[in-house]
Simulated scan of single mutants.
Amino acid sequence: MALKKTIIYKTINLPDAYLRVVCPQFDLTKKTMSFGVWAFASQDAAGDWNNSLDGAATTYADVPYDMAGANAYEQAYTHLKSLPDFAGAVDVLEVGQPS
C-alpha cells in the first residue's frame, strides 16, 4: 500500500507523488510506534528505492499503536490520513495486495 497526493518538492509541483511507509518500529511497551515515509515522484518511480526524492523522507514518532488492531503498516497509513498534511491522499494498492 501507499498514498498518492500532490506535493511540492523543491518548487516543483508533483500531482501524483507516491508516499510509502517504511520501517515501522515499536517502543518497548508496544503502545507506540515510529516509522518513515519516503516520497517518490510517481508510482512508477517507486519501483526502485534509489528513486526516492532526496530530502523528502519524513519520520513520525510516538504514534499510538494497538497490538490487537490492524498491522503496523495499516495503522501507520491510517494515522497519516488523519493529519492535515495528508488531507486528500488516496490509497494505492501495490501489485499483489488484496483489495
Score class of each variant (00 low, 15 high):
Lys30Asp: 10
Thr59Glu: 12
Asn71Asp: 14
Glu74Tyr: 06
Ser52Lys: 15
Lys81Phe: 01
Val37Glu: 04
Pro64Asn: 03
Gly55Cys: 10
Met33Phe: 07
Ser82His: 04
Thr78Asn: 14
Lys10Gln: 14
Glu74Trp: 10
Val90Lys: 12
Asp44Trp: 08
Thr58Ile: 12
Leu14Thr: 07
Gly47Trp: 02
Leu19Trp: 02
Thr59Trp: 13
Leu93Met: 12
Asn71Leu: 02
Asp16Arg: 08
Ala57His: 11
Gln43Tyr: 07
Val37Thr: 06
Gly36Trp: 03
Ala45Tyr: 07
Arg20Ala: 05
His79Glu: 01
Asp85Met: 10
Cys23Glu: 13
Leu14Phe: 09
Ser99Thr: 07
Ile7His: 09
Ala70Thr: 11
Met33Leu: 11
Pro15Val: 04
Phe26Glu: 09
Met1Pro: 07
Asn50Phe: 09
Thr58Phe: 05
Asp48Trp: 03
Thr6His: 08
Ser42Pro: 08
Ala68Thr: 13
Asn71Gly: 11
Lys5Phe: 01
Ala61Trp: 05
Leu28Asn: 11
Tyr60Phe: 15
Ser52Trp: 13
Ser52His: 15
Gly36Asp: 05
Leu3Ser: 05
Tyr77Ile: 10
Lys31Gln: 15
Lys81Glu: 02
Ser34Asn: 14
Leu53Phe: 11
Ala56His: 04
Gln75Val: 07
Thr59Cys: 11
Thr32Phe: 04
Gln75Tyr: 07
Ala61Phe: 06
Asn50Lys: 13
Ala72Glu: 13
Val63Arg: 01
Gln97Glu: 15
Phe40Tyr: 15
Phe86Lys: 04
Leu53His: 06
Gln25Pro: 02
Ala39Phe: 08
Val90Glu: 15
Pro15Tyr: 09
Thr29Val: 03
Gln75Ser: 01
Ser52Pro: 00
Ala87Val: 04
Ala56Phe: 06
Ser99His: 10
Arg20Ser: 07
Pro84Ser: 11
Glu94Leu: 14
Asp44Glu: 15
Thr32Asn: 05
Asp16Tyr: 06
Ser42Leu: 12
Leu19Pro: 00
Ala56Asp: 06
Val92Ala: 09
Asp27Val: 05
Lys81Gly: 06
Ala61Leu: 09
Gln43Ile: 02
Asp62Lys: 12
Ala39Leu: 01
Trp49His: 08
